[in-house]
């Protein structure tokens, strides 16, 4: 085929010619300047390439991406910005929650004015604020939106001590939430309270309930970090009972060895 027409034919095949240029190609074929048999064979091959298909990627690809994104977001976060935290809280407040918070604030203020500002009253007020925050966290963890649930997990990470209600809600989330990102973030938060026996037991017993490779790996890392040797049997059960991905299996074997 004539070399000077190579670019023209390439444009024709990729649909980059306008009507006038297309007509020119057809005229060149009709006039024999472009070999019709060669051209048609190339055009047919170009059309045939459509049958080279691509299989669907596995769900792990998506899981890995979102785990990476959450990690990046966590590392990009400033250490502590009170106005941002307040914004987060207010963004999560629906009207009934806002009304409840407002009533609590008024009542708290009223009590404060009545009883003065001795230490025990201040502590009581602090406890009430903590209760309010925990209630909000529990309520948000039950929400339908993944973003809200992630936000709840992040807010709970700011709680100074491991509260029983919050821990219970987070463990429930770890075992039942449909989002891998929420579950991975929950592990990160619970790790902070690794001294608490309920947290330690809850994390170990959550291993068997997980189906996502990403979550299993996050739990394996947490177990090594926290030195929870009693998790070994849970991992051994997983290896024996499940048909795990080879990389996950190797990871669990190295986790067991580390523990």
């Amino acid at each position: 085929m004539n070399k000077k027409y190579e670019e023209l034919i390439a444009e024709y095949l990729n649909g980059e010619l306008d009507e006038q240029e297309t007509a020119r190609v057809e005229a060149l074929i009709a006039g024999g300047e472009i070999d019709m048999i060669d051209f048609k064979a190339m055009e047919q091959l170009h059309n045939e390439l459509e049958i080279v298909s691509t299989p669907e990627p596995s769900s792990e690809m998506s899981d890995r991406f979102y785990a990476m994104l959450e990690e990046e977001k966590a590392s990009a976060k400033p250490t502590f910005n009170i106005s941002e935290k307040l914004n987060e809280l207010f963004a999560a407040l629906t009207m009934p929650r806002l009304a409840y918070a407002f009533v609590l604030l008024i009542v708290g203020g009223f009590i404060g004015a009545q009883v003065g500002s001795n230490d025990s009253q201040i502590n009581e007020l602090t406890d009430q604020m903590q209760d309010m925050r925990e209630m909000m966290i529990v309520s948000m963890l039950e929400g339908a939106s993944t973003t809200d649930r992630l936000r709840a997990v992040n807010i709970s990470a700011e709680l100074p001590i491991a509260d029983e209600k919050a821990v219970r809600a987070l463990l429930f989330t770890l075992n039942n939430d449909e989002s891998v990102n929420v579950r991975v973030q929950t592990i990160e938060t619970l790790k902070k309270w690794g001294e608490d026996e309920t947290v330690r037991e809850g994390l170990v017993s959550a291993i068997g309930a997980q189906n996502s490779d990403v979550v299993i790996i996050a739990l394996a890392d947490a177990m090594v970090e926290m030195g929870l040797q009693n998790s070994k049997s849970e991992f051994e059960n997983l290896i024996q009972e499940r048909n795990l991905n080879i990389n996950v299996k190797e990871k669990l074997e190295s986790t067991i060895a580390s523990l």
Partner: peptide
């Protein structure tokens, strides 16, 4: 864009696991 990228890598390598790694 994950599908177009995966398709790009798959047709370059014809390997599913490598294509997924490259998308990541």
């Amino acid at each position: 864009y994950n599908r177009p990228l995966y398709s790009f890598f798959y047709k370059k390598t014809f390997q599913t696991d490598v294509s997924e790694d490259l998308v990541q």
